[in-house]
Amino acid sequence: MNSITSQSVPHKAPAKKGNFWLRKGNKIAPYFFISPFFIIFGVFGLFPLLFSLYLSFHYWEPAAGLAAMEWVGLENYIFAFQDDWFQKSIYNTGVIALKSGIPQHALAIPLAFFIHTSFTRWRNTVIGVYFIPYITSTVAISLVFTTLFSRDFGMVNQVLTSLGNFTIADMKVLSWIFPVENIDWTRPEYTKDMISFVVFWRYVGWNTVLYLSALQTIPRDLYEAAIIDGANRYQQFRYVTLPMLKPMAFFAVTLTIIGNLQLFEEPFIITGGTGGIDQAGKTAAMHMYITAFVESDFGTASAISWILFMIIAGLTWLNHKVLGGSNH
């Protein structure tokens, strides 16, 4: 120890001249090097966030320029809460979120389990097939579905009515379950179901992949132990697979909650940007968009976005309470 200190060369003072950035004791350089993140985050993350919060307390007709902002306090929030269009859009969002979200997970988990246990060679192909909708453009998907669900020329109606009109001995034997006339899927009573179906179809593969990756982390031993313990296939699924999937389920359900509450593209394109007849397919995010860009009320739109944020945060917290309990 002593020998080392005695041998060490006396500290050499850094040259005053030379490269500014490499000079020892430069207090600016480190901040300079870490600044890109903060600049980008500030400009694209923090500023819009704070600006929209600021905006939500103002009335602003944007075409009139920044100077036209007018402080209105909580009026935008109060208006949004009392606005039956907003209430309706929240209701629509909730219904679509549930109708598309619950089947998504109810199907994705068993499907993942099935793929996990039944496929070896074709597994990646099968996963790929289920994953394709997720990476396909929403516009293309929505256009295909509006064509499929077209009243007079859509394949869905063709199949349904041909079943409904299926005749044995002059009797339409299936007419009690299938329609005999074309269904107008743009009717408000069907709008939400159609959107939910498209959303469900689109994201079920994504969730399957999430659950599949979680399944692969469950040790084989646990299943073998369960087999020895006399658990049948269902009991293995119920008592081993499901509890082991809980952390992933928490993650996947959180993503679904956030995604479904921000649902915009699918309903926007399916309803042609209007929300459909009787606004039956108008989601909260669409309402926000229309408030901002059609009605030119950016203040109220910001308030809506913050209300939406609070709802999402609340539901995520609730989800954490239900599914997020730590197991490991």
Binding site: W60, P62, A63, A64, G65, L66, G273, F293, S296, F298
Partner: peptide, 15 residues
């Protein structure tokens, strides 16, 4: 059509 008018709205808003 829609993008154009949205872009013009934003451009007018920010100058």
């Amino acid at each position: 059509y829609g993008d154009h008018h949205n872009a013009m709205t934003t451009a007018l808003a920010t100058g």
